[in-house]
Computed example of a mutant assay.
Amino acid sequence: MEAIVFVITVFIVGILISLVAAQMPKVAYKQWEADAKEYLNIKDEAATKQPQSTIWDLHQLKSELIVRKQKHLCLAMLFLIACIPAWLYIHDPLAMGLICGVIGCILVGALVDWEHMYIPDETIVLGLGLAFSFLIIHGDNLEGHIIGAMVGYGFIAFLRWFFYRLRGIEGIGLGDAKMLALTGALIGVTDIFLSIIAACIIAITLNLLSQRKQSKEIPFGPGIAISGLIFYHLQLLNEALA
């Protein structure tokens, strides 16, 4: 009975996470558009004449779910599969809920990056808060995970600086650095470098298998997310076998 409740609950949460991932770019684009108009001093008369409906209203979320039902169901199933190891090896309900929240934030960031080439800051901030809350409750080596987050962010930030000095252009976004900081906080400093190598391989493989073969830009977020979750699940398995 407990397993059934877990599956149903996590699957429903996964659908909600998928809907949030679909709506977040729309919210960001509207905010960017408003900021640009304010900066350029452009008055939008149509917007002032009639109030605009919020992008998070239930009608729009329902329409999004109906139109792209298959995609949201697939992501919900992926979220469920990613959370199963936590349910098997973490017996504290609060700790399990926190780690499932971290997994959800990682998946949202990866999905948005794959489709829109940016990673929302909100998912990273929330994910880091949940991750460190889990580490405090679970009693893990907090210092090692803090260093893992710092190394993850610092590695990408250094590559970004080095590439800019070498080529004069920004070769990698800071969103990837934030995503690697989140996965570094989750897996700790021990496996962070192996995770980075695996993330590069996964990102390149996904790009070759997708329709982005001719694109010069490769979304690195999905590779970081998959690699981080794989190493975290391996750590759970090692703890269970120890």
Results as ranks from 00 to 15, higher is better:
Ile147Gly: 06
Ile230Gly: 00
Gly152Tyr: 03
His145Trp: 10
Ser63Tyr: 11
Asp35Gln: 15
Ala149Trp: 03
Leu194Thr: 14
His116Val: 09
Phe6Cys: 07
Ile124Ser: 03
Arg167Glu: 13
Ala47Trp: 03
Glu64Gly: 02
Ile136Cys: 15
Gly171Cys: 07
Leu73Glu: 03
Ser133His: 10
Ala34Tyr: 12
Ala22Met: 08
Leu130Gln: 07
Leu237Thr: 06
Lys71Asp: 06
Gln31Ser: 15
Ile187Tyr: 05
Ser53Asn: 09
Ser215Asp: 11
Leu58Tyr: 10
Leu166Asp: 02
Leu241Lys: 08
Leu234Asn: 04
Ile12Val: 11
Ala86Asn: 07
Ile12Asp: 08
Gln70His: 14
Asp191Trp: 11
Ala21Gln: 03
Pro85Tyr: 12
Leu180Thr: 03
Trp161Lys: 10
Leu234Ile: 04
Ser227Trp: 05
Ser53Trp: 08
Ile226His: 02
Asp191Ile: 05
Asn41Arg: 15
Ala47Val: 13
Tyr89Ile: 07
Trp32Asp: 10
Thr205Lys: 09
Gly171Pro: 01
Tyr39Ile: 15
Phe11Tyr: 09
Ile169Pro: 01
Phe79Pro: 00
Ile156Glu: 00
Ile172Ala: 06
Ala198Ile: 08
Gly148Cys: 11
Lys37Arg: 14
Phe79Ile: 09
Asp35Leu: 15
Leu186His: 04
Gly97Arg: 12
Ile66Asp: 04
Glu143Ala: 14
Ala47Met: 13
Glu170Val: 11
Leu126Cys: 15
Ile226Met: 05
Met179Lys: 04
Ile218His: 05
Leu61Trp: 09
Gly188Glu: 07
Tyr89Trp: 14
Ala242Asp: 15
Val7Met: 08
Leu19Asn: 02
Tyr232Ala: 08
Gly173Arg: 01
Pro219Ile: 02
Leu111Trp: 10
Pro219Ser: 03
Val108Gly: 00
Lys216Asp: 12
Ala177Arg: 01
Ala86Glu: 04
Gly152Asp: 04
Met24Asp: 01
Lys213Phe: 09
Gln23Arg: 09
Val108Leu: 10
Ile226Glu: 00
Phe162Asn: 03
Gly171Gln: 05
Val27Ala: 06
Ala95Phe: 14
Gln214Asp: 14
Ile226Leu: 07
Cys74Thr: 13
Tyr39Leu: 13
Tyr118His: 06
Ala240Thr: 08
Leu107Ala: 07
Ala185Gln: 04
Leu135Lys: 06
Ile106Cys: 05
Asp176Arg: 01
Glu33Phe: 14
Met150Lys: 05
Ala22Gly: 07
Leu80Ser: 01
Glu33Ser: 12
Glu38Phe: 12
Asn238Gly: 06
Val108His: 00
Met117Trp: 10
Ala76Tyr: 00
Leu73Cys: 03
Tyr29Ile: 09
Ala185Phe: 15
Ala177Ser: 08
Gln31Met: 15
Glu45Ser: 14
Asn207His: 12
Phe134Asp: 07
Ala149Pro: 10
Ala181Ile: 03
Asp176Ile: 06
His233Pro: 01
Gly154Leu: 05
Asn41Gln: 13
Ile218Lys: 08
Ile187Pro: 02
Ala22Glu: 09
Gly175His: 02
Phe162Leu: 11
Ile55Glu: 03
Ser215Leu: 11
Arg165Val: 01
Gly154Cys: 06
Leu166Cys: 05
Ile103Trp: 05
Leu159Ser: 02
Ser195Pro: 00
Pro93Met: 14
